[in-house]
Amino acid sequence: MTSEAQFLEHVQSGGVVEAGDPMPDEYRALLVKFIAMHGNSELMGVLPERDWILRAPTLQRKLALTAKVQDEVGHAQLIYRVCEDLGAPREELLDDLLEGRAKFHNVFHYPTRTWGDVGVIAWLIDAAAIVSQKALLKCSYAPYARIMKKICWEESFHILHGRDVILAMMNGTDEQRELVQEAVIRWWGPIMQFHGTRMPPEKDLVLQYRIKTKDNESLRQEFLDGYVPQIRELGLEVPDPALRYDEGEGRWLYTEPDWDELRQVVSGHGPASADRLDLRRRMRDANAWVRRAVLADAA
């Protein structure tokens, strides 16, 4: 048996890998790509929400949203450190992101239009994300699994914050309820695309190496199980007439998500992709002198 086959058997049987352990190049490259995309998503996920910190309608909401966004930046920082240990420096990863060579989650390529979006992002998008992230708690790469504990813990507070924002609006005026319903309609498509296509597990190397521990469709089903009943209980409609739980099949049936849209969006052609990357590039360039000053200090 080759050492690569032994490695695969090791991780598939529950074995873990530490930063200094020998690992196949393929595994290291997959890890960096996967973990960097997570870091990029935490970082780009700040931008849809940042404007709404400034617009938050009460002091308490402003504090909660600022804290949430601060958590996301903190997650990006932790995640990029894991990548650094794997040989991918943060500056390089950020350059890849800003120059369009790296990806981030589809949901962060869309604009936010109302305070309803703020609630739906914190509640449902963070819920979809936490389903994925919980499946990383048993990642074969132990340093990543360890930081995921902190991340999942904090994300669970974001969902509570999001649900509270939604509940306040649903208990408010007709206009407020309408803002929430419109936001659910706007975000449902991207949410259904979020966990990715139904890739056969045997073809998904990330799954084979137990970097993630559940396939895309299982994650989507888990999200639907947890949240469709809650959405409906609040009197909100899910904009998919085909969505229903099939007792016989033991799973949710739904209209096929628009996979072309997903491919377009994650390759940097979403409605807000260019503006968001452009904002980051402008700020990187404007702040370049600060980084030079700090690096000169550190040298």
Binding site: L43, V46, R50, Q70, V73, Q77, Y80, N287, R291, V294
Partner: peptide, 10 residues
């Protein structure tokens, strides 16, 4: 808060 997300470093 205007710096959130766009400060010179994380």
């Amino acid at each position: 808060s205007e710096w959130t997300g766009i400060a010179p470093s994380l």
